[in-house]
């Protein structure tokens, strides 16, 4: 950064070191991760039976055919694996146990560290959870070819960052509250519901969809999944794919600024500025 970098070029950059350390750390839990190989197909089978049965009576539900509905559940589950995040929980744990100070005494910014922890963790999850589940979907006969591969990659990458920012921001609450499990779990649950992880958002009542449109959550699962399927619609609003991905990018910037603002207030509280 300031001329020092070239002299010390044999030192691996922090992000590489964090990714590799986290990857190794999580290797110990790969058998736990692998349980998804069992649970996700079962969960998907239940969904399959539900919608199979429902579509016996109607041909489309809220504009989705049976195939599209199943594709939605398949892709949203993959988005769920990709975006799964423990940054918030870990931050809260650090603050509540006081271990956060071991980061304060090191020359590194925690959000940077935490983000690459997620990267390391998800690289492992990719092999252990996602690849086998993708394999299951293919065996099941789901057509997994994305409609617009380029935009799909962009949209999934943005959602990866956004879900991290949401989780990390929620974790910041621990600067103010002693016990935060309840708040965290509430927000996590609402994030999951409102992001469309359990059910496509266009199935919710129309009035509710209008609210969902203006919340950041749809950009975590619903948007990337719809980009994958190739058409976007919510609350009667249809949009070309590039446009919704653009909105998604704006949302990341907003969320980042919100996070930095709350963070700076939290750090002030932690370091006791003005008290």
């Amino acid at each position: 950064m300031d001329g020092i970098v070239s002299r010390r070029s044999d030192t691996p950059p922090i992000f590489k070191a964090v990714i590799s350390a986290t990857y190794k750390e999580n290797l110990a839990y790969r058998s736990q991760m692998a349980i998804s190989i069992f649970t996700q197909p079962i969960y998907f089978l239940v969904q399959y039976f539900i919608w199979q049965s429902v579509f016996k009576i109607s041909d489309t539900v809220s504009g989705f055919t049976l195939d599209q509905m199943l594709l939605y559940f398949a892709i949203s589950s993959l988005s769920g694996f990709l975006n799964w995040d423990s940054a918030g929980t870990e931050l809260q744990d650090l603050i509540q146990t006081g271990k956060f100070i071991t980061f304060q005494i090191r020359p590194v910014s925690h959000i940077y560290y935490s983000f690459f922890q997620k990267v390391g963790n998800r690289i492992l999850a990719f092999w252990v959870e996602m690849v086998p589940v993708i394999f299951f979907y293919i065996l099941f006969g789901i057509d997994l070819i994305p409609a617009k591969p380029f935009w799909t990659v962009i949209s999934f990458s943005i959602s990866f960052v956004l879900s991290f920012l949401v989780s990390y921001t929620v974790g910041t609450i621990a600067f103010w509250l002693v016990k935060t499990d309840g708040v965290r779990r509430s927000i996590l649950l609402f994030t999951q519901i409102f992001s469309g992880l359990f059910l496509p958002l266009n199935l919710f009542p129309k009035g509710f969809q209008k609210i969902l449109f203006y919340l950041p959550f749809q950009f975590i699962t619903y948007v990337p999944t719809r980009v994958y399927i190739g058409s976007y619609e919510l609350a009667g609003i249809t949009m070309p794919i590039p446009q919704i991905v653009f909105l998604q990018a704006i949302m990341v910037v907003i969320m980042f600024l919100v996070n930095r603002f709350i963070w700076s207030m939290g750090i002030k509280r932690f370091t006791g500025v003005g008290s």
Binding site: R7, T11, P12, A21, K24, E25, A28
Partner: peptide, 20 residues
């Protein structure tokens, strides 16, 4: 780091403090 050897954690600090 609880689940990995101290040496790996040392490597992490090597990067954080930019030690040659």
């Amino acid at each position: 780091l609880w689940d990995i050897p101290p040496l790996d954690a040392f490597n992490l600090n090597q990067s954080i403090y930019r030690i040659p």
